[in-house]
Design a protein around this nucleic acid. Sequence first.
DNA 1: CTGAAAGCGCTTACAG
DNA 2: CTGAAAGCGCTTACAG
Lengths: 342, 342
Amino acid sequence: MSPRTRISDVARLAGVAPSTVSAVLNDVTGARVKDSTRERVRRAADELGYAPNALARGLRTRRSGTLALISDVIATTPYAGQLIQGAQDAAWEAGHVLMVVNTGGDAAIERRAMAVLRQQQVGGVLWATMSHRVVPAPVPPNGTPLVLLDARDEAGAVPSVVPDEEAGARAAVAELAAHGHRRIGFVLDENDSPASEGRTAGYRDALAERGLPVEDSLVARAQSDSTGGEIAAGVLLDRPAPPTAIFAFTDQMAVGVYRAAAARGLRIPADLSVVGFDDLAVLAQELRPGLSSVALPHYAMGETAAATLLRLVEDPAAEVPAVQRVPTRIVRRASVGPAPRV
Amino acid sequence: MSPRTRISDVARLAGVAPSTVSAVLNDVTGARVKDSTRERVRRAADELGYAPNALARGLRTRRSGTLALISDVIATTPYAGQLIQGAQDAAWEAGHVLMVVNTGGDAAIERRAMAVLRQQQVGGVLWATMSHRVVPAPVPPNGTPLVLLDARDEAGAVPSVVPDEEAGARAAVAELAAHGHRRIGFVLDENDSPASEGRTAGYRDALAERGLPVEDSLVARAQSDSTGGEIAAGVLLDRPAPPTAIFAFTDQMAVGVYRAAAARGLRIPADLSVVGFDDLAVLAQELRPGLSSVALPHYAMGETAAATLLRLVEDPAAEVPAVQRVPTRIVRRASVGPAPRV
DNA sequence: CTGAAAGCGCTTACAG
DNA sequence: CTGAAAGCGCTTACAG
């Protein structure tokens, strides 16, 4: 850093004391400073291109103006950018700056990260997982506010922000039902997770609400990639009373549904409608026909989590919801059509 | 923050002066402190869980231990996470912490960002674009080192780190040629960019090197999505002497190549081989057959850029390369086969 | 209405 | 081998 201008330089140029400059530039309420003096101070600050040193200010005020986002792996998911951007935008809006650190899921690195962030005097930390999970609550530096992002605390003691999996699944079923489908299948991941549980609950509720069949024979589980989707969809389509529409747990599984349909000479959406989950642009958009899909609200989740954290930073005793479920949004493309006449 | 322990607390417990604690904990070279005293200091620090306040240290030493990554949009690309993670890992390794801010491409926000980062006393800034572009050099806070990431400075004055587009394209052609293909087509973006220029150069060079035909009739340009890929590939495949292999500018264009092939009854890779670019996991992996693709080294680029920046932070006069081209890597799947007999 | 002083928590010469 | 002092650049009571 070159010869930076300090507050004392501004004070000298304006012919006042540094404390006056501070009062003016920070708009301290209750500071009685003549308007003409204010004017002189501002002009001097402008002229010198003065910008206060955040380190000095933070040392004095005990607020660094920084937030941190710790996550297990940010690299391997296409959503990371959105989560980070949402959090960063919200932090920025509130005059905070966001630090990111990723731990690769390593507990030792995580402890070190917490220590470093404590040294950096971060005001609060966002702890993110890149796929909705239930985790043992991480331990933040003493007294530092913590909010979980796309993760939930086992003990339920830490506020968390997650996608509304249930509502997302209900929206998918609603979309299909609105097109007249009655036998709606569900192809899902074989692993249990908050996502699979939430989406299953939403799927069943939405069917039940409408008096549509809720049958085990309409549900098939497999690994959550296109191969799994192909196998599971095949099972459903080969049954005596196959579904006319399939809700797929992820867009990747939906790719498999497309393949299973093609292998059986079924056209989408004329013979089979499908809705995916995740709205992976690169996939859903490029499929033929384009895949209608439930979009996970990563940006909004990042924003909500940061906003919640900020409230806690302002006031550690603030009341914040234990878990906030952020609404999903259905993106319509061309994979849903009217139910075929029987 | 609760009652934090300060260096004076450690000093008191160890029965020494704060300056001694500082010397011990920072392993100051040339500081002569008895081993027994060192031991006592360390023990006291451990016992109190002491961690130095980075703000106070930074204020005194004029080094905040932070780096920043400014980017236009981090949300809309699936690679953002890798770029950030590479940069963060390298910064972390060197004892630095990484701040991120995104400007949405807005010049006013960018200026504000630079101002805020200057206030935060960041040691250096990484300026990233999410797709290899040539830009007017941004103006960093006075004297702060700057490195461009996935972008190049118009004026060539700022060090930059970009993917080796040319080598990537050469690798794609080499892969195809190794399987006996002689007529190798190229389907590319209609827009000019460092990526399209570099890949075109690599494609032509690799052909020329091997004495393979370099013909305009083997190249078709269209918009860079699957529809564009389909159109461009169609043009090539419908020519009198069609290619037996196609190198696609992006994986998304490759999806279109698959469709064009299918529409003409051509099987991949028996009748047509294809190599994409980007290695978008979610796409390349889920295609049937799996798409061989040239992977862009986002993680390594982030790492390299941060390492370069760190050298400049240590020593602003350090000699660093004007532009570093980071090698790509070809990921083989199932879309390349032997050239069909004619 | 404005200024002088103290102090946030460190590190860096400098004494001894 | 170790300690006392000064100072990084702010802001916050407190005087006047």
